[in-house]
Design a protein around this nucleic acid. Structure first.
Lengths: 235, 235
DNA sequence: CGCACGTTTGATGGACATCAAGGATTGTGG
DNA sequence: CCACAATCCTTGATGTCCATCAAACGTGCG
């Protein structure tokens, strides 16, 4: 499952990741050297809500979803992450258990640092700490926006927003528009939007009538992006 | 409104603030020296959603609430902050506009740093950056938990949670239990919980019958904390 | 082919927002 | 000290959104 050090092909990608902004070639190489690589098949759990934050991950390839299970068993998907995204950061930086579960939705490859090791790296390269601060701040703001949405917006608006985020994070251009590039059931989308699979199905049917989306079994294509954007903003 | 440098009395408090953990006396003094003090009367707006993140604040005394207004005008209160809490941090560290508005709910005193100045300080004292990382990570996790709550929990549970947070952040022991130590109307509480003032009023009436809370005009006392905790957890 | 799984659609009910009206509390000015 | 206005709070009636339950209908895989 684990190999020593990432290959040269990955380094090019990694040099452009936000976390490594402003790092010179030497430090960058040192940081990357300190990591190992891990591969995940679809459905594999990288880290689980409640686990001790022993590892920090950076996605090199593939997609993971960050989900949270409420005490009474209601699932919610918080975010979809892809290449260049950090996983487990908030927990590692606070030294408290992971607050959510990360699951691969397609084949994935991630870099792995031990929590203590990464802290040493931040001590050695302060720029790394500052970048991490910016990344985590961004997460905090995104979550804040989602609190707002969950609290004040109706279900169809939240579904529209969830779809737009998926287009942004996992969109692939196709003839008819933009397709979500992994298998996404109604249930999955419902967990992203904080709704039920029934509501999602009805909403998608209506939007299909209107030509805004096209969808099939675990497949969604957004055809009219501007229109969907207006829906997300409640117009 | 502004004075040069905080007084000696404040320093004692500041030495115990999470942001300054592990800072020696010298660096601590330097960081505090770099700040000015600002006073706010109740209702004063410290910073507004959409403003450029030019200043970073640390509350020395008093309480501020962080609120967000949705595009269609629905208000939501995200958090109540008190002595030792940072205000504006996520925005300053990302160099993007403040995502929410901070308003004093009682007389307050805050330390003020220019954004660039604080960044210099983080460069000079890397421990400061690491502490900031921990603080912001905590915020991210709290917001994550709130997304979960908003998405899956019914209104009365959210109201219970809002009250518990207020007890934690602004509780003052009184004969009958714990009182929220500032004027809090039903509307205010509704904005904390993501509900309407009507729902809050009905819920509080029921809880008053049950002896869980006592409340009056802009006043709330929690009498049965364990019971309220159970309600917050849905039991 | 047939079974498992995902999807659709209808019917029903409950939670909660909204509208409406009246009651309580606080502060103010005569 | 009382009258009155301004807030804030309560409670009932109503309606809407959406979760839930139930059942039938594709679709694709073994």
């Amino acid at each position: 499952m684990n190999e020593r050090a990432p290959g040269a092909a990955d380094r090019k990608l990694l040099a452009r990741v936000g976390l490594f902004n402003g790092l010179d070639a030497g430090p960058l190489a040192a940081v990357i050297q300190a990591a190992t690589v891990r591969r995940l098949p679809p459905g594999a759990v990288l880290l689980e809500q409640g686990d001790e934050p022993r590892w920090l991950y950076l996605i090199v390839e593939g997609r993971l979803k960050i989900g949270h299970m409420s005490p009474d068993g209601k699932p919610l998907t918080l975010r979809l992450l892809g290449p260049g995204d950090l996983v487990g950061c908030a927990a590692v930086f606070r030294k408290l258990p992971y607050p959510a579960t990360a699951t691969a939705v397609v084949d994935a490859r991630v870099l792995v640092w031990g929590a203590a090791r990464f802290e040493d790296l931040m001590d050695g390269y302060p720029q790394l700490a500052k970048n991490a601060l910016s990344v985590v701040s961004g997460r905090a703001e995104e979550m804040l926006r989602r609190v707002q949405e969950m609290a004040t917006e109706p279900a169809d608006q939240r579904i529209a927003r969830a779809l737009l985020r998926l287009v942004r994070d996992a969109g692939r251009p196709v003839d008819a528009g933009t397709e979500i590039d992994f298998a996404l059931s109604r249930q999955d989308l419902a967990e992203f939007a904080g709704a039920t699979l029934y509501t999602v199905s009805r909403t998608l049917s209506a939007w299909q009538q209107a030509g805004i989306v096209a969808s099939g079994r675990r497949r969604v294509v957004v055809c009219d992006l501007p229109r969907l954007t207006r829906l997300a903003e409640g117009r």
